[in-house]
Design a protein around this nucleic acid. Structure first.
Lengths: 164, 164
DNA sequence: CGGTATCCCCTAAGATACTG
DNA sequence: CAGTATCTTAGGGGATACCG
């Protein structure tokens, strides 16, 4: 089963910290971080989005997602299943058939995630602009740095005129 | 500057795919994925959350976050700055002083992310329960597998009684 | 103080091959 | 078909040392 090391990290609500924010990310490495890591991992979101419309078989997902390896798809689905976001139904036919579907909780997560997608769509232009501006500033700055490095080198060279 | 390889990956809106979902994650490796990766990386969220209340100096952030290394904090801040989510103000005093603050866009992102945090808080019990149930099933299943593996081994052993 | 530059390690994810 | 097992690699991230 891969590596099997997720027995006992479900608790961590001890430490008497109440420094506000740290509560839901540092200490709550418990929950927020884990869900965040889940929804942000390379494939989970695609799977959830795909399953939102209808349940799908393993191979259907595999083909729909394109770049995913068998290993990664299995892993992703197991994680989602473990968290109760996706249900797995095995039909003991020949050849075997396994259907994956979103659970009710999975659906609510998808709905929530949508707001983030919307945010991104609304701000992608601003972000692109910000990046372009930043890169421009950075390039200009670096050029300046290099220029007066060359300048100083020239001065140093002029100061000791022996040896080419 | 570390490795400097982010010049030209701002475009990718070509490929005539319109397979629905793939639109905002596969192709939009452009935007959605990148923002997701940003908010999900180990420190960005903490920084954003911390800056939501007031602007902070580098060292204040460093101390507030605890496990973060200087390198990672700088990296994180640069990324956020590049994306236009955080602003950086250098005061040319001695000793130097640099203030970081959320931009208006950064604030809207934080607001959006909050809904995800809320979702997590609302569902953490269900998730924990789902995990416990899953782990229980998995353990039971494995035990069963091992048991009849032993059984088959015993049969095999009985079948060829020569050599201990 | 607020960074950069270097080295190094460890784990996530890809490729490949085998199985019920 | 729907996986598991095994090997390998890239890069995220920590530790450390130095600089303006």
């Amino acid at each position: 089963m891969e590596d099997g090391t997720f027995e006992s990290l479900g608790y961590c609500a001890d430490t008497g910290v109440d420094d506000d924010v740290l509560q839901w990310d540092q200490r709550a490495d418990c929950e927020v971080r884990q869900i965040l890591d889940r929804i942000a991992d390379k494939w989970s979101l695609l799977v959830i989005a795909l399953l939102d419309k209808r349940s799908l078989r393993f191979t259907e997902l595999r083909r729909a997602i394109d770049g995913v390896s068998q290993r990664m798809l299995t892993r992703t689905l197991r994680h989602l299943e473990r968290d109760g976001l996706v249900s797995r139904t095995v039909h003991p036919t020949v050849p075997p058939r396994v259907d994956y579907a979103l659970t009710p909780m999975g659906e609510t997560l998808h709905a929530t995630v949508r707001s983030l997608v919307v945010w991104t769509e609304e701000h992608q232009n601003s972000i692109a602009a910000a990046r372009a501006a930043y890169d421009l500033r950075a390039a200009a700055e670096q050029e300046a740095t290099e220029r007066d490095a060359a300048e100083r080198a020239a001065i140093a060279h002029a100061a000791l005129p022996q040896r080419p």
